[in-house]
Design a protein around this nucleic acid. Structure first.
Length: 493
RNA sequence: GGCCCUAUCGACUAAUGGUUAGGUCACCACUCUUUCAAGGUGGUAGUACGGGUUCGAAUCCCGUUAGGGUCACCA
């Protein structure tokens, strides 16, 4: 039988990075086995539905390169792929369960349930079918009449009272649970919608899902699902419960401690392939001798049995390191085009591709993310507004202004083009004037970039061009320097 | 609290009974140097604890501890 797996998010917001990891492992497993990957939208809670979230989900997934063989956006033979469009199916199966005496009607109101919870020991509530209002405590004609009168009801699973359930998880091995710890789960809600448990089991069966790969938080409800499969007489798919993604303090990854939406990382300028690479390594490792893997390699090497059992901390530092490696190895032309988009987002326009390519080449090894270049070296895109005063104090000497003045004149007349020619100009100058490179290069950097850090100074000058370099030097000497001097007289300098 | 899951350097992980417990990120030092990085070289650092089983245990079993998940007409 060919492999069919699914990613089944609920449309309650944005794609969580944990969700992306689940989707990714499903994707890797499907592709590795030449199987199919299905997207199914579990929108059975009308109160939590968020507008546009399906679109968002699909956007984030496709950004990551995760493609589906079936789903609401691509079609398929097992649709509809929105659970909200399959209500009649779930209702039919719920009724079937009632008829075979494996489920029952219950008429308790939310208030009654709340009260029952309040009176039972706080954390230990379990639905007691012999006390509450349902088919066990009502006469048959009473049940009938309540339904005929249109009284709201739910359908609950009749869980056997003392029965041991065993199942095997591909990642965790055999797990044993006694049904005395399993609640009579609501299968069909009073609004006619199914709960996750019913819809999930029914759809996984109807859609021929062979392997269920999902987060560990579902592990405790597997016994309910086993009971359902058995009740229907269906074959149980293979199951793999993935370890959770964690915060730094080892709690379940949450909004409070950082970004959890995939789109946050898109907005920060992480590369899709780098992000996927990083996410894939949270809970699994193909060879352990390195950290950079192409998606093809991930697909080729993926083994569900090799997935770890314990949760993995989502560490942005590692993400940054991986992203930086991708940044360093991607074609410069491609990066230049992308940088253009980031600049435009900030209202900066009209930089030739060749110019941006040079900027990228010069600065990419100094940052972790592509758009970070703009913040790291704004002077590549417009003249500096501020000048680092500490840097000035450290390197400025009484004779410095004269040196820069002279160099400005030389640059204007010789018009150097390459880093090497800029270098020669300065070298010749320091030789003639009996000074040192150090004495010149830092003031030059300050006047041209305003800051104390950056790429090689001569390379930077090459990219900016002699004309721009001269203009900045001139501006600094004429307009900025006098102000700094006035300010410093009060201080001591 | 009940039930379930988990436990290797700070982090991600490798080693599925025999290794000086390996790699990557981070960190530290040195180097390179024109600042900041990157690179190169080296280094610190781990099998939670206690019992078993075994010639031999990170690995198998039991217990303890710690962490997590879950206990809705949410998914």
């Amino acid at each position: 039988m060919s492999v069919r797996v699914r990613f089944a998010p609920s449309p309650t917001g944005f794609l969580h990075v944990g969700g992306l990891r689940t989707a990714l492992y499903n994707y890797l497993f499907a592709r590795h086995n030449n199987g199919k990957l299905i997207l199914r939208i579990e929108d059975t809670d009308r109160t939590r539905y968020v507008e546009n979230s399906v679109e968002n989900l699909i956007n984030s997934l496709s950004w990551a390169g995760i493609t589906f063989d079936e789903g609401p956006h691509v079609g398929g033979n097992y649709g509809p792929y929105f659970q909200s469009q399959r209500l009649d199916i779930y209702q039919k199966y719920a009724k079937e369960l009632i008829e075979s005496n494996l489920a029952y009607y219950a008429f308790d109101t939310p208030e009654e349930l709340e009260q029952a919870r309040a009176t039972s020991s706080y954390h230990n509530f379990k639905y007691n079918r012999y006390i509450m209002r349902n088919q066990f405590t009502l006469k048959e004609y009473e049940t009938k009449r309540l339904i005929e009168n249109g009284t709201q009801y739910v359908i609950r699973l009749k869980v056997p009272e003392n029965y041991t359930i065993k199942f095997t998880d591909i990642i965790r091995g055999e797990i044993v649970v006694n049904t005395r710890d399993v609640d009579d789960q609501v299968l069909l809600k009073s609004d006619g919608y199914p709960t996750y448990h019913l819809a999930n089991v029914v759809d996984d069966h109807l859609m021929n899902i062979t392997h269920i790969i999902r987060g560990e938080e579902w592990l405790p409800s597997v016994p309910k699902h086993i009971l359902l499969y058995n009740a229907f007489g269906w074959e149980i798919p293979a199951m793999a419960h993935l370890p959770l993604l964690l915060n730094k303090d080892k709690t379940k990854l949450s909004k409070r401690q950082g970004d959890v939406a995939v789109e946050d990382y898109i907005a920060k300028g992480y590369f899709a392939d780098a992000f996927v690479n990083f996410i894939a390594l949270l809970g699994w490792n193909p060879t352990a001798d390195r950290e950079i893997y192409s998606i093809e390699e991930l697909i080729e090497k993926f083994r569900l049995e090799k997935v770890n059992k314990s949760g993995a901390i989502f560490d942005v530092v590692k993400l940054d390191a991986i992203n930086a490696k991708y940044l360093y190895s991607k074609p410069v032309a491609e990066l230049a085009r992308e940088l253009q988009k980031w600049l435009e987002q900030k209202g900066l326009h009209h930089y030739p591709d060749e110019y941006l390519a040079k900027v990228v080449q010069l600065l990419r090894e100094r940052v972790k993310r592509l758009p970070e270049i703009i913040d790291f070296a704004p002077y590549m895109f417009f003249p500096p507004n501020d000048y680092d005063l500490k840097y000035f104090e450290k390197h400025w000497k009484p004779e410095t202004a004269e040196h820069l003045q002279n160099l400005l004149r030389i640059i204007k007349t010789t018009n150097p083009v390459f880093a090497q020619t800029f270098h020669e100009v300065v070298s010749n100058y320091i030789e003639q004037h009996n000074t040192k490179l150090k004495e010149i290069i830092h003031p030059l950097r300050l006047a041209i970039t305003g800051v104390s850090f950056g790429a090689g100074m001569f390379e930077t000058m090459e990219v900016l061009g002699a004309e721009e370099v001269a203009a900045r030097l001139e501006h600094f000497l004429q307009n900025i320097l006098p102000k700094i001097r006035i300010n410093n007289e009060n201080n001591k300098f």
